[in-house]
């Protein structure tokens, strides 16, 4: 049972991790992230990097959809903007990767603001359709502005480099992706400790009364679009450094749906939910694939027979999670924590 969490100041009470145990776990997690590439192979590093990139983009979408209540299906297209920006800057200018990623985020944010303009008038499904339209337009631009984007064949770019060191293999790119993901997650968590995060939640819950409380709706809706797209743009930039080939097909509409599914499965309006959702959506198909792989020595046809079953199981898992915990994995996590905090008493 958890006892004795006395605070002496309001700042201490408002801390992100307010108990020693929590801080301890957090340091353990960070240490784990720092040591990870030394103990895993390239394939595992590859998967971890993919998960981290998806976490950044999912966190961005959660700020917009989960916290501000604006449904968007444009997240993959914003990632595309970031990826193309990074690729072009790396090819044409050769500027440092951090600058490229910032510009990628910034440009995606600007485009996000433009796409977000209808949000003052339309909500819910209507806004989702408006953002689909935007992502189709962006896809068209990627595919047809051949002189800049390289058309359907896309762009191949050099790896990121720092003081002559080139980040080529997944366990090398990891050192770019991991710190940026951690920083951006802390940023997202901080956002909701301030007036800006509160304004977003107010807009989600009751936008009209939010206005009477002094929140300028258009400004904050667009700000939410900007921040969300910034995250997508940076995620797209990281994606570009990871795969080093950017084509229009890299960021299809299904990817936007993937992120939407990730925040729903993980938990809308929860930073932890973004992480859990992105991990779940990226890793479960991989784990199922591995399980099929384990079967193949015993059952030679396993891969052929089980592949469709794998997809069905994945879909089924999502549905089961949603039925049993509509608030997502984050809520399951909170229930587990509550259990241990109150143990040996029952919740």
């Amino acid at each position: 049972m958890r006892i004795g969490t006395v605070k002496e100041s309001y700042i201490a009470d408002a801390a992100l991790f307010d108990t020693k145990v929590q801080r301890g776990w957090m340091f353990a997690l960070l240490a784990g992230l720092l040591l990870l590439p030394f103990f895993t192979g390239q394939y595992a590093s590859y998967l971890v990097c993919l998960v981290l990139i998806n976490i950044v983009s999912t966190a961005g979408l959660n700020i917009l959809t989960g916290f501000t209540g604006l449904v968007s299906l444009g997240q993959a297209a914003f990632m595309g903007v970031g990826a193309y920006t990074v690729a072009l800057m790396e090819i044409k200018l050769g500027t440092p990767f951090l600058l490229n990623l910032l510009v990628a985020g910034g440009l995606a944010a600007v485009i996000g603001i433009v796409v977000g303009l209808p949000s003052l008038r339309v909500k819910g499904l209507y806004l989702a359709i408006a953002t689909i339209a935007a992502s189709v337009i962006l896809h068209f631009v990627f595919a047809n502005w051949t002189s800049v984007t390289g058309g359907v064949s896309g762009l191949s770019m050099p790896p990121a480099s720092l003081f002559g060191f080139e980040f080529i293999q997944p366990d090398q790119v990891y050192w770019i992706i991991m710190p940026i993901t951690v920083i951006m997650l802390f940023g997202a968590a901080n956002l909701f400790r301030t007036r800006i995060g509160r304004a977003f939640i107010a807009i989600r819950d009751r936008d009209i009364s939010a206005e009477v409380l002094g929140i300028r709706l258009l400004r904050y809706k667009l700000l939410s679009f900007a921040i969300s797209s910034f995250y997508a743009g940076v995620a797209g930039g990281l994606w570009a450094y990871f795969f080093r080939v950017v084509t229009p097909e890299s960021f299809p509409l299904t990817m936007s749906i993937f992120f939407l599914a990730a925040i729903i499965v993980g938990g809308m309006g929860s930073i932890l939910g973004s992480v859990l959702g992105a991990v779940f959506m990226t890793m479960v198909p991989e784990v199922l694939k591995m399980m099929v792989g384990v079967l193949s020595p015993i059952w030679p046809d396993a891969v052929a027979v089980m592949s469709p079953v794998r997809i069905i199981v994945f879909g089924g898992l999502i549905i089961i999670f949603l039925i049993f915990e509509p608030d997502g994995l984050a809520e399951i996590w909170r229930n587990i924590r509550r259990f241990f905090h109150l143990w040996p008493f029952k919740t």
């Binding site: 901080n190 007036r195 800006i196 509160r198 304004a199 409380l213 929140i215």
Partner: peptide, 19 residues
């Protein structure tokens, strides 16, 4: 309750992200 003070605060998005 804190939300009520929104209009009288000055925190901008960058401050907020960095806290």
């Amino acid at each position: 309750i804190k939300l009520g003070r929104h209009a009288h605060m000055k925190t901008n998005p960058l401050d907020a992200l960095l806290y």
